[in-house]
Design a protein around this nucleic acid. Structure first.
Lengths: 236, 236
DNA sequence: GCCTGTGAAGTTCTTCACAGCC
DNA sequence: GGCTGTGAAGAACTTCACAGGC
């Protein structure tokens, strides 16, 4: 109904996890000059079914026009607002090994509103070196510089992860992205998401071993990226 | 019931996605010399509730002993078998940018049964160089060497991802881990999982912006039908 | 007594299908 | 006619709570 209900909105977690995908698809459409899109088209671009897309968007409000579709720029802005992307976030990456290096240099963050601001490592021979334009500091250095609205990225070996998480939380960090294959115990009020490469591969291994009898398999929990950037690598 | 029902087992996707976590916890317990563990203890180590753990394990068969618990080594072996980890998998990483480099050097694969065997890039100045002990080849070179039971890892920019996926599928690859923020269209029978860093950060941003009124919030993630999602991680 | 295995209940997420509006 | 928004049905997943066996 009205465009700004804002009141009792409780957006399901599964929907939240898909909003970034919709956002990416909308950004691509905007770049391509498209200004209106139907749920069918946007769903296709996002790799979901149109009914699911419409249901998801209905949790944000009624931003579509029946018989017409959605205004690309408007919808993009609404989703950005919902995700809190109207201001940039600062990232602190902890653990300057292979992965930490790659993440520090990853260009896909900045273009999506996330600025890598601090690089942390406790190894004396790493502190003070420069990586991707930043000087590596230790936790003492971080405590001196940081504010509390940053997002922590843990890229250390698994046995250091809990300690790092505790230190980040002590500094006021309330959002953590954990690449270390370790279970973290974290006080409530702090959000953690994990990215575990070996786990993903093992899930693929399972499906390779159990050929899916499944007639149709689409969907699952959440997302599918569409345009935008990430990494560099093969050149056409 | 019996220990080897094996017949009509249909393991839910959410359960499959947790098996790697249980496996890791069991390996840690085995290393620590523990040989029996209760559902309560294992659940704690895996970061889930014990009822969920027991339910998950019940899909594999009855490998516990009432009043006692689970035999660590036995359960580990059963899960490994279920995931198809009794033999190693070969990985081909496509896209030798920052992320491709880091993945090629990531030691967490080998220790979990995944051997990085081929590195692919199409840029002439990259082909032939050596990275992490391997020589970078192009797709023609890959076609000459590879077998069809490999797992593909896409670490290219998003605009190259679909083409890479098509080539991999043409070579017989049936499992793909996609790091490029792009929606891939893939024939059925091929399994894709995605890891999208910016998406994860945006989900964290949402929760930072919407302080959770939620009383309890634990774990998440799982699923698996077809594309997407992401998980945990890599350490240097 | 202790702890697993599991129907049943409860919760969350997805899909359907159609009313409502352009 | 076309397309959104949404109750209602359905499927998937989680939690409960207790029967069953050591």
């Amino acid at each position: 109904m009205s465009a700004e209900p804002a009141a009792h909105r409780v957006i399901p977690g599964a929907t939240v996890a898909r909003l970034p995908v919709y956002l990416r698809a909308l950004s691509a459409l905007a770049t391509a000059g498209t200004d209106t899109v139907s749920s069918e088209e946007l769903a296709e671009a996002a790799g979901v079914r149109s009914a699911k897309l419409r249901k998801d968007l209905s949790y944000l409000g009624s931003y579509g026009v029946r018989g017409v579709g959605y205004d690309v720029a408007r919808l993009r802005d609404e989703i950005e607002g919902e995700l809190g992307l109207r201001h940039d976030f600062s990232l602190v990456i902890v653990g300057m090994g292979n992965l930490g290096h790659a993440l520090a240099a990853y260009s896909g963050f900045a273009t999506r509103g996330f600025a890598v601001r601090w690089l942390v490592d406790e190894a004396p021979d790493v502190v003070g070196t420069r990586i991707a334009g930043l000087t590596v500091i230790d936790f003492d250095g971080l405590a001196r510089e940081c504010n509390d609205s940053m997002i922590g990225v843990i890229a250390t070996p698994p046995d250091a992860a809990q300690d790092v998480a505790d230190r980040l939380v002590a500094l006021g960090v309330r959002s953590i992205l954990n690449f270390a294959p370790a279970v973290l115990s974290i006080p409530s009020g702090v959000e953690v998401r994990k990215v575990d490469l070996a786990t993903e591969l093992q899930i693929l291994a399972f499906h390779q071993q159990h050929p899916r009898l499944d007639p149709k398999a689409l969907d699952r929990d959440a997302l599918d990226p569409k345009t935008d950037d990430l990494e560099e690598g093969a050149a056409p």
